[in-house]
Simulated scan of single mutants.
Amino acid sequence: MHKVQEKLLKTLERENLSGKTLREIGNIIGEKSAQKIKHHLTQLQKKGFISYNSAKRQIDKLQKISKEGFISIPIVGMANCGPATIFAESNIEGYLKVSKKISPNIGNLFILRADGDSMNRANINNKNIESGDFVVVDSEQKVPDSGNYIVSVIDGLANIKKFIPDSQNKRIILRSESTKDYLPIFIHEDDDYNISGKVVDVIKK
């Protein structure tokens, strides 16, 4: 692999390059030519290491499967396990290496760090969710079944809850499963709400 490509990948592991100009990226890695930066970003995309949209200045490092059968999943922030009080952010903080057996949809996974104790009696592959745990989310599964654990965003705030549809009252109920008593969250049709994905596993802290 070309040295410029190696520098780009190493830089993407520690910081988000999306939104930056080619010249700004070049300054970060010590390469003056903007055209060379564009060329090597394109090559990395062809090799499957990154997703690159030059028009939108969007650059995302993709999961790569190692010879040992591991993938690196991006950690994109935190989600609250109590009331929805932590803003949802999509900046990549780092990567966690896990077995590729964690899910069949390895290209759609991201990780959030849980905050709070309202899901400490959840059961995801015989594991609960405690504050500080890494929660693995499949972003492709945005139409959950009743009883699934999901990550949702309410008014720009991320949270982890159990999904219960209530068609009779035209609403969604997001329930906690905790040793403490937490009130459910009721979502109606006109609320600012969307589902980011289904929780598929928990990596204990």
Rank of each mutant, 00 (worst) to 15 (best):
K7N: 12
K10F: 10
T11A: 14
T11N: 07
T11R: 11
E13G: 07
S18M: 02
K20L: 14
G26V: 08
I29D: 05
G30Y: 02
E31S: 02
A34W: 09
Q35H: 14
Q35W: 14
H39S: 08
H40L: 08
L41N: 01
I50D: 03
S51Q: 05
S51N: 03
Y52H: 05
K64N: 14
G69M: 05
I73D: 14
I75E: 10
G82W: 00
P83K: 10
S90R: 05
Y95V: 03
L96I: 04
K101A: 13
S103W: 02
F110A: 02
F110P: 00
A114D: 07
D117L: 06
S118R: 04
M119A: 01
M119D: 00
N125K: 14
K127R: 08
I129G: 00
E130G: 09
D133E: 11
K142A: 02
P144G: 12
G147I: 15
V153L: 08
I154H: 10
L157I: 08
A158S: 12
A158H: 06
I160W: 00
K162Y: 06
F163K: 06
F163A: 12
S167G: 03
K170S: 12
R171Y: 02
S176N: 02
S176W: 02
K180Q: 14
I187E: 03
E189R: 13
D190F: 00
D192V: 09
D192T: 05
V199Y: 01
V200D: 03
I203G: 04
K205Y: 11
